[in-house]
């Protein structure tokens, strides 16, 4: 058992899978010679060679389109979009084609494709390096969407995504890469896609989150425990498909729920979770369902005080939970 950062866990997952199955390849900008701008694929070119570690041009539509073609031919590509902000040109290939191939072919065509995408802000990234776009993927049938928050989850879920025969969008919050460290077991393990996890048990209020801000939720829960408020923290881990059972089960227990995510509020994942709870846990609600999200502005600001005003912070989460508990 050792302590790893999220980026190390991700690197280990890919390396292990590439050693295990020679059909697994990686492609993307700077993944080869540079080892990835986040060093996610450091050492891969040397170990696996040019045929399996491919430096692409700055052409996201091609990255995903070529990866799709390779997947259709029987390889298991891991395509990297360097920043979520650059993913827009790849949408047609990813959501318009890859997501539909299996359904459109009556299940005859499989697309064992993983698209890894660093996302999220809080790193002074500004307009083009901070975007959250999970809602677009979340809305699309035909793909799975994963967003781990811890090194343990990142490694186990990435392995599962690589072994899955369906297209998986694997979202990695870039601020967690080096700033979240945790225990990762030595041996082989795979975590199931589509399962959320209660990261902190509680009885009065549920908070549902994912990604970087999950850790702020945990900090808030610990702070409120000392005030006698018992908060249950649910980490979604997989966004699509949502683990309805865990979500509903937790709210049935507590009766009050706060959904926290960095992504814009309107039409974000919190909206769907809230709708599911209103539909299926109505009789158990003791307070209105609340969401604490990024504001509905086109991008995360660059200026530090504005960026902080944008992000959900531990303080904001604590205040919202306190209010909810008192309702």
């Amino acid at each position: 058992m050792g302590e790893k950062s999220v980026i190390e866990a991700i690197r280990d997952a890919m390396r292990e899978e590439m050693r295990r199955d020679e059909r697994v390849i990686v492609l993307g900008e700077d993944v080869g010679a540079r080892g990835g701008v986040f060093l996610a694929t450091q050492g891969f070119l040397e170990e696996f060679g040019e045929a399996r570690v491919i430096d692409t041009p700055l052409a996201e539509a091609s990255i995903v389109g070529i990866a799709l073609g390779l997947a259709l031919k029987g390889l298991r590509p891991i395509a990297e979009i360097q920043f979520a902000d650059f993913a827009w040109p790849a949408f047609n290939q990813l959501l318009g084609e890859a997501a539909r191939a299996c359904y459109g072919s009556f299940g005859n065509v499989r697309v064992p494709l993983v698209v890894r995408i660093p996302y999220g802000g809080g790193i002074r990234g500004g307009l083009y390096h901070s975007q959250n776009m999970e809602a677009y993927f979340f809305h699309t049938p035909g793909i799975k969407v994963v967003a781990p928050a811890t090194p343990y989850d990142a490694k186990g879920l990435l392995k599962a995504a690589i072994r899955d025969d369906n297209p998986v969008v694997f979202l990695e919050h870039k601020k967690t890469y080096r700033l979240v460290r945790g225990d990762v077991p030595e041996g082989e393990y795979v975590l199931p896609l589509g399962k959320a996890e209660v990261k902190h048990e509680g009885s009065q209020v549920t908070v549902i989150s994912y990604g970087l801000v999950l850790h702020y939720c945990l900090q808030a829960a610990r702070k409120l425990a000392s005030e006698g408020i018992s908060v249950e923290v649910v980490d979604l881990r997989t966004l699509r498909p949502l683990d309805r059972e865990t979500i509903i089960g937790s709210v049935q227990k507590t009766g009050k729920v706060l959904i926290v995510h960095e992504d814009n509020k309107t039409g974000g994942i919190g909206a769907e979770v809230a709708a599911i709870l209103a539909e299926e846990a109505f009789e158990f609600l003791d307070a209105p369902i609340r969401r604490l999200c990024g504001p509905d502005v086109p991008t995360m600001p660059f200026a530090p005080p504005l960026e902080e005003a944008y992000m959900p912070t531990t303080e904001k989460i604590v205040a919202a939970l306190r209010e909810l508990a008192a309702y």
Partner: peptide, 15 residues
């Protein structure tokens, strides 16, 4: 294994 979130002293930049 949930891990902990580290504080950063100076801006680390996007990458």
């Amino acid at each position: 294994r949930v891990g902990r979130l580290l504080e950063e002293e100076r801006p680390v930049g996007p990458t």
